[in-house]
Design a protein around this nucleic acid. Structure first.
Lengths: 359, 359
DNA sequence: CCTTGAGGTGTTATCGCTATCACGTCGAGC
DNA sequence: GCTCGACGTGATAGCGATAACACCTCAAGG
């Protein structure tokens, strides 16, 4: 009768009631404060605890309440995201990752698109003028020197994603392109191929060189002599892939496998092979790089290297936030800057039709 | 040296910044609650009191803190965004639009991905459990009956995007698929084509029928007799496009143009044509629908129909927010639900090689 | 004259989160 | 063996506003 169970008169303003930080805390068996620390990437939480909390967050589908946060005093960071023509599917993954992390870290993302050419500087100025604290740059913008200089000058902290530039002073999130290319090359060799063609990427991008070097290193390791005529130039575009593939298949002794520096050119290679009546992968193995949506949009689907784009952009944002907050006196977790790639095996590779003679 | 840029040392816990409702209350000699009533235009405040409060507000230059407001009130809406395999490039556009609108409407977006198959229900449950007020559904999820039923049951308001379903009870943002297909068909006929093949889309999606009907209507308008053997089944996949294209080109009198219900199948059609030594568009015009990134990733680039995806998702969110706020007693603008499409002309169409005989 | 009820106003309790500080619990150093 | 400090964690107190209810003051009605 009495109010021993003091629960009833609790209409609680919220009706639909999204999970709160306390719900997460309860589920994880910690205090709300600890959850707060986890979602803000502060570094003084034991990894085990962090994991438990993250699991609870995932289970509940928790996402922090913006209003409460800014009320409680966390200053909201604004960070820009400037992109130009990313390859198919890249951007969506990229956005997904940044978004997810953005809602966690309570940063506001300002997206700005720029066309090719040098509008990039204008657009960047626009972003800077709108008062951003930092910026995320997916390729190919992350390697534009003028842009980087402009940002430096404006004192805007930038993080590059998926670049292969090795500038120690710059924040960057990447995979090991060299190792990835080597891995793919080893995979192709394991299938029995010895005469492997390689289509290079745009010489202006650092990743192109890394990928080529990875290919050559793997070949060398296997004791296969390098044949320069098996390495042809491409520009990452489908169109350039057509020409490159024609060139490789025009050889008197055409390669039994072609490893292309990206999926678009690999798709073009498949098209050329088909036009010549070659079966892929029966007569020719074709492998790509990037795992863009194009790689599963064609037939046969491409064996390729997958970059964890979403994770990369997530990390990029986290790195940026950590860096900025640290500049303001806070401290944060160390963010890993080199993420793992995966070789995705689909239907475009197979052993060569005839067992090649021993080198 | 840094004095120009606005980066004060962060007055911890807001010390002397913006005036609060209490400051106003003190100055006006009333309680904060009364001030709240005044700024919310509630009618049970004596005119005299109201005036005093207004004067105090003016004196202090007070303006209510949004964050605090939405925290205390039932302010902030949470909107879910559930997607499964969207076609290439669709998702990024989609996200861009919703994000943009989300920050405008002060709405929180929760993104959830679901794999193919019936995990969609699980994922939806997860979203529902996480306390969303509404949900945005891009295709193909927006036509999954079980999913819609589940959402209805949970009383979660849903908006479908780019569906062709004509269920008047459901909120939906779409283009006029019928008119778009008719427009494209007219375009092809204007080039001089009379024998036009059509590849149908997945029969389970309402848009497929709309597109087919648009095609047939345009043909009929032009007085071209319909040839059922020129209309073949596809499933929106590249693979299905290969088969469909083979079928059309196997005819004794193959079509001079093929209009495919989406870009993936159009790309497949181009591949088949090339395999047969046909030039596109010289020997065969190929047109797609959707303007996915695939349409510019291949050669020749596809003439296709562009849907304003970003605008559509923007509108979807706006519609959802308006509807929800209206349910809560507010009112809002009417949101247009039928958006404009565009015919994008690229390199895959041309007049037929030989002038066809008059019907 | 006392009850009654409506309108006007104040009080209190959150809203969901973070700042701040207090509280263990270790290992190192003397 | 005991202090000390670093580290991981919890407890408490707000941030600025509103919801819900308590309270007070009158005028009208019995």
């Amino acid at each position: 009768m009495d109010s021993s169970t003091a629960a009833p008169p609790r209409p609680s303003r919220r009706s639909g009631s999204a999970p709160t930080i306390s719900d997460v805390a309860k589920l994880a068996g910690v205090s709300p404060m600890t959850v707060s620390r986890v979602i803000n990437s502060e570094n003084n939480v034991r990894p085990a605890t962090r994991e438990v909390v993250n699991a609870a967050i995932a289970t509940l589908g928790y996402s922090p309440n913006r209003a409460a946060r800014s009320l409680a005093g966390a200053g909201q960071l604004r960070i820009g995201l400037l992109y130009s023509n990313p390859s198919a599917g890249f951007l969506s993954e990229f956005l997904l990752g940044s978004l997810d992390q953005a809602s966690r870290s309570d940063v506001q993302i300002v997206v700005e698109k720029c066309e090719l050419g040098d509008h990039e500087l204008e657009r960047a100025q626009h972003l800077i003028a709108s008062g951003i604290d930092g910026i995320i740059l997916p390729p190919p913008l992350c390697e534009a020197p003028a842009l980087l200089a402009l940002l430096d000058e404006a004192n805007v902290c930038a993080v590059s994603v998926a670049t292969a530039m090795r500038d120690e002073d710059r924040l960057a999130i990447r995979i090991d392109d060299h190792a990835a290319a080597a891995t793919m090359t080893r995979h192709i060799m394991q299938l029995g191929h010895r005469r492997i063609g390689f289509i290079k990427g745009d010489p202006n991008l650092a990743a192109s060189a890394e990928r080529l070097e990875g290919f050559r290193a793997a070949l060398a390791d296997a004791g296969i002599a390098e044949d320069p005529s098996l390495i042809v130039q491409g520009l990452y575009t489908y169109r350039s892939g057509l020409d490159a593939a024609e060139q490789l298949l025009d050889r008197v002794e055409p390669p039994t496998a072609i490893f292309s520096s990206n999926d678009d050119m690999a798709a073009a290679t498949v098209a050329v092979a088909h036009r010549r009546g070659l079966d892929v992968p029966g007569d020719l193995t074709v492998c790509g790089f990037d795992d863009t949506t194009l790689s599963t949009a064609i037939w046969p689907e491409l064996t390729t290297i997958h970059q964890p784009i979403a994770d990369m952009s997530r990390s990029a944002l986290e790195l940026l936030v950590t860096t900025l907050r640290r500049q303001r006196g806070g401290d944060g977790v160390e963010v890993p800057r080199l993420l793992d790639f995966t070789l995705i095996r689909r239907q475009s590779d197979a052993p060569p039709r005839r067992r090649p003679r021993e080198r």
